[in-house]
């Protein structure tokens, strides 16, 4: 495996060789067949292939089934509050450019209770990978309608069917200020999932990945058919996008050439209804990054701090009269 240098690490090459076992911990307690399992393995593989130092990697989650994710990673983890993964992750990254940060969030977590933070995290555009586990339902609390549940979903809060159209998370994200990376993938296509998260990890900014996730416990029917038949997936392909080997491409029903620098086209594709478009919808590597602002004055020595503090205090001194 080619060992890559992390862009912010000054050490030219690694003196270690981390294996999959370095990124795992415990046994995942998700339902059998839950999309979480494959996402977990994929993230661990990406970490390994990027040779992220486990101690320099932080996975932050909210609450929900997906929130359990950091417990199964051999890295540092932060399983915080429902809806609040973004603020915590942003705080972690703001003054620690050396850390690799992942955010794991659910559709309720991100698009409902944490919606304000989602909007602003996109705008902050700090370098991190944000994975939206979108199973279209509240899993942990046992089947309540989520903001991404399709209209008419029967749930415990809408037993006669949900009454509002769902939020489209990629469309919404594509409409946010300073958006720099939006991709969509599915938990059951390991190759595409890997290529997407890998691309996200290499993005210099906030990479937002919506992962269409199966929840056999509560939404067996939602992606059941689609998952069985890859022809229902529409591959967005481009040399600057997420590229699959020709053989892997053949499995898809439709392939659309899409230049990820074109946000208008991206928005159009985000609206496709007769299948799930997967791939890189949008990328812009030139956007302003708030983590760069946060780190701009790191590393000031104690002596300098003290000196500047003293001169600030001078301004309030009763004896330092200029007169």
């Amino acid at each position: 495996m080619l060992v890559q240098t992390h862009e912010l690490c000054s050490v030219p090459s690694f003196d270690h060789d981390y294996g999959m076992e370095d990124y795992g911990k415990g046994v995942a307690r998700w339902c059998p067949g839950c999309g979480g399992h494959s996402i977990l393995t994929t993230v661990q593989r990406v970490c390994k292939d990027m040779q992220y130092e486990p101690e320099k990697t932080v996975v932050v989650s909210g609450i929900g089934c997906s929130g359990r994710f950091p417990h199964y990673m051999g890295t540092y983890g932060f399983h915080g509050l429902h809806g609040r993964a973004f603020p915590v992750a942003s705080g972690v990254k703001f003054r620690r450019p050396d850390l690799n940060v992942f955010v794991v969030t659910g559709d309720g977590d991100c698009c409902s209770i944490g919606a304000a933070h989602w909007v602003h995290a996109i705008r902050y555009n700090m370098k991190m990978v944000a994975l939206l586990f979108d199973n279209g339902i509240y899993g942990l609390t046992k089947k309540q309608t989520s903001p991404t549940s399709p209209l008419g979903t029967h749930s415990n809060t809408h037993p006669r069917g949900s009454v509002l159209p769902p939020i489209n998370p990629i469309q919404t994200t594509l409409g946010l200020a300073n958006v720099s990376f939006v991709a969509q993938t599915v938990d059951w296509n390991a190759t595409h999932l890997y290529a997407t998260i890998r691309k996200a990890a290499e993005h210099p900014g906030l990479a937002f990945v919506r992962i269409v996730q199966r929840c056999p416990a509560f939404m067996r029917d939602l992606y059941g058919d689609i998952a069985v038949n890859p022809k229902n997936l529409i591959l967005l392909s481009h040399e600057n996008g997420i590229n699959l080997k020709p053989k892997a491409r053949e499995a898809f029903g439709r392939v659309i050439e899409h230049d990820p620098s074109n946000i208008h086209k991206a928005r159009e594709h985000a609206e496709i209804h007769d299948g799930i478009p997967i791939g890189l919808l949008y990328q812009n590597t030139a956007n302003a990054r708030y983590d760069e602002y946060g780190a701009h004055n790191l590393g000031m020595g104690i002596e300098e701090k003290k000196q500047n503090l003293e001169s600030l205090l001078d301004q309030y001194s009763t004896s330092n009269s200029v007169e």
Binding site: V58, V60, F78, G80, L81, R84, P87, V88, A89, S90, G91, V92, K93, F94, R95, R96, L99, H117
Partner: peptide
Amino acid sequence: GFAIGASFA
């Protein structure tokens, strides 16, 4: 949350 994240780090 941001302050807590920073302090954790």
